[in-house]
Amino acid sequence: MELMNTTIFSNASAVDLDHCDWRCRMILIALYSVVLLGGTAGTIMMLRMMFKRKSQSMIAMIIPNIIVLHSILLVSLPFRLSYYVSVVWVFGSFACRVVSSIIYGHMYFTFVFYVAIIISRLLNYFKKLQMQRLQKYHVVVLSIVIWIVGSLVFLPIFFFKYGTDPRHSEQQRCFEFYKDLNHREFIVINYSMIVIMMTTVVALFLIKMAVIFQMIKALWPDMWAHQEYRAQIKSLFFLLVIVVCFIPHHAFRIHFIQNYSEKEDSELVLYNEICVALTTVCCLDMLCFIGGAIH
């Protein structure tokens, strides 16, 4: 019996090594562990700070949405870690689809809330939006709209398309849904998301830089004494998080889609999995809040 169990585990490991070898798994275990520990600590500390301060600013009212997203992702990470440690998925194919899809849902929903914060600051600078006139219920309505619209887009893809190929349920493997990129509809969806995110980030970055340089020119050398300048610099933080955590995944995705082959995929899968894992690092943003980078 012991020999049989050893053989089964060895076969599972051999199958897994064709897709995500030991080096890949060690990198992912380390990265996800850091995100799990740092993200959990940051989320708890941020919640305590918010309960104490009870700020009514727009950013403070959007932050709970981001905390909810981070919390959902953090709950899913132990399942990922158990798989990369044991090399066997024992929770069933549906759970695999859920855990796998959470990381993408978290990325895109977080992206939308980050963009909402950045745009609100820009509108405030251009006097299109007076923050003092922005009531709490406006932000609540905006949050509800984002959740509803995002769910209407995301859930149909998950329930009817994502991970439904019978190949994904075999041999107790998980997180290999990149194989669906051989299907035209997934290629279209991926390219569409790449274009949307890249275009949005470039446009916001150019506008944000123009605004900051204009303010530096007008307020130099006392720009740090002005609240609006500090607010623009602080909101730039969210744009930098997007660039560091989300853009590498989408930039590499173009190369991955064009070059992926199930016969020779080891290096591409390694880099793809690392880029996917990198998107979760945005969970550490709460530690930056606690550290005083953003208030």
Rank of each mutant, 00 (worst) to 15 (best):
V99K: 04
L240K: 14
A251K: 08
M1Y: 13
V141Q: 11
V139S: 01
N5A: 15
W22F: 13
A293P: 02
F9Y: 15
E228I: 08
Q132R: 09
L129R: 13
M209E: 15
L152T: 04
G42N: 10
V75P: 00
H19I: 06
Q214L: 06
V149L: 03
G38Q: 14
Y104G: 00
L74F: 02
S71F: 05
L204Q: 04
R25Q: 06
H249G: 01
M193F: 04
Q132A: 12
I254T: 06
L239W: 06
L270F: 12
L36S: 03
T164V: 12
F160N: 06
G42L: 09
L122D: 12
I196N: 00
I233P: 03
Y83M: 02
E264F: 11
F113K: 00
T199F: 03
V149T: 06
W89T: 02
M286Y: 09
F158H: 10
A225Y: 14
K128F: 07
I117F: 01
I233A: 12
L36K: 04
L219H: 06
Y104F: 09
H250Q: 02
Y84I: 01
E262D: 15
L73Y: 09
V99W: 14
I254V: 04
F113V: 01
L122H: 08
N272D: 07
S143W: 08
D180S: 09
R23N: 12
I242P: 03
W224C: 14
V281P: 07
N272I: 01
F126W: 14
V145Y: 04
W147I: 02
G150Q: 07
I63G: 07
T199H: 05
G163A: 09
G39V: 08
F159T: 07
D285Q: 15
W147H: 00
S192C: 05
L122E: 11
L270K: 03
S266W: 08
F159C: 03
I119T: 09
C174D: 00
S266F: 10
R167C: 10
A203D: 05
L28W: 09
I102G: 07
I44N: 09
F113M: 00
E176C: 07
Y83F: 10
A293V: 07
P248V: 05
V75E: 10
E264W: 11
C96I: 11
A225D: 15
Q232K: 03
F79Q: 06
G105Q: 03
E264I: 04
V145G: 07
L278K: 01
L142P: 01
N5Q: 14
T199N: 01
A210G: 13
I117H: 08
R173E: 03
L122G: 07
L73F: 12
F9H: 15
H106A: 01
I196H: 00
I29N: 03
N65M: 01
P78F: 14
L240D: 10
M215L: 13
S76L: 02
I119H: 14
F91I: 05
